[in-house]
């Protein structure tokens, strides 16, 4: 059983093609990088796999851990349960600013415990203990009671990873987790993801800007251009010449140092409304 399986995925935003016939399969325990220039479709692909957005209505299927996340443009019937097994880490962390770090991490339980208990915020002592353990693993347990807005970007991102740990996620989807971080925070976040991958055997799919990070942390890389997968294989075969061949003039942007990217695109209020109504 593959951890992630995508078949025939297409997505069109306002008549503009964002993803074209995506096929991919990722095995349990892999750590895979997803690279590509801004607007190449990385975020859109990750949001589809996480069940946060619908595909076009043609013949397509996305399975996560053997269960249908969405099929032919419709979310699967037990999408909430599958979401609870998939941790998503976002570029802008997506923590709730005014809640404490610990509460944010406890949110990881919402998909697992009875919904009345989650709704009332009645978490058991054991659950709080495990949330603290998760915070300890990512190195920010001392900040547990601070509001998450008071943390630095790198600390917030590690809190977001701690949330996926309490979630007991078997798959982590990380959408540009280091794009808004400085180099040393980026390294800490990538180290944390790598540890979760190696120690817990969690499958990680991480979209990245810089090819050097992809090569260092991920044995396998998938490269995208204009909504299509143009490379899928061993990260070591990504030589500068090869990248130039793949991306032409864009290759400089992919090779480190260019950190000036707008926050993940493809996101409109309308999408949020459509999703909320699901």
């Amino acid at each position: 059983m593959s951890a992630i399986q995508v078949h025939g995925l297409n997505k069109t935003f306002n008549e503009k093609k964002a993803l074209t016939n995506i096929q991919l399969s990722i095995e349990p325990g892999e750590m895979v990088a997803l690279i590509g220039a801004s607007g190449s479709g990385k975020s859109t692909l990750i949001r589809h796999i996480g069940g946060l957005i619908h595909s076009d209505k043609n013949d397509s299927e996305i399975k996560v851990l053997g269960q249908v996340m969405q099929k032919n443009g419709k979310l699967g019937s037990n999408v909430r349960k599958i979401r609870s097994e998939v941790g998503v880490v976002f570029q802008q962390f997506n923590l709730v600013n005014r809640l404490s770090v610990l509460t944010n991490v406890l949110m990881g339980y919402l998909g697992q415990i009875p919904s009345w208990r989650g709704t009332l915020g009645l978490f058991t002592h054991a659950e709080k203990k495990r949330a603290m353990d998760a915070l300890h693993r990512v190195g920010i347990d001392k900040l547990a009671l601070q509001r998450s807005s008071t943390l630095s970007g790198g600390q917030q991102q590690r809190a977001a990873i701690a949330r996926t740990i309490t979630q007991g996620a078997k798959v982590i989807l990380a959408d540009e987790p280091i794009a808004s971080l400085d180099p040393s925070s980026s390294r800490k976040v990538m180290d944390t993801l790598e540890r979760v991958n190696l120690e817990d055997k969690v499958t990680v799919l991480v979209s990245l800007h810089q090819v050097d990070y992809a090569m260092q942390y991920c044995p396998r890389t998938i490269a995208m251009r204009d909504g299509e997968i143009v490379f899928d294989g061993n990260s070591e075969s990504l030589t500068p010449d090869f990248l130039k061949q793949l991306y032409g003039d864009h290759s400089l942007e992919l090779y480190g140092n260019n950190k000036q990217e707008k926050p993940a695109g493809n996101y409109t209020q309308k999408d949020a409304a459509a999703l909320a109504s699901v």
């Binding site: 996480g50 946060l52 909430r80 349960k81 599958i82 979401r83 609870s84 097994e85 998939v86 941790g87 998503v88 976002f90 802008q92 962390f93 997506n94 923590l95 709730v96 600013n97 949110m107 990881g108 339980y109 919402l110 998909g111 697992q112 919904s115 989650g118 709704t119 977001a160 949330r163 979630q167 996101y267 209020q269 949020a272 999703l275 909320a276």
Partner: peptide, 14 residues
């Protein structure tokens, strides 16, 4: 909308 999406991704109810 991003924090809401973060909560949704954990499998929370509406």
């Amino acid at each position: 909308p991003r924090p809401v999406e973060g909560i949704r991704a954990t499998g929370a109810t509406a």
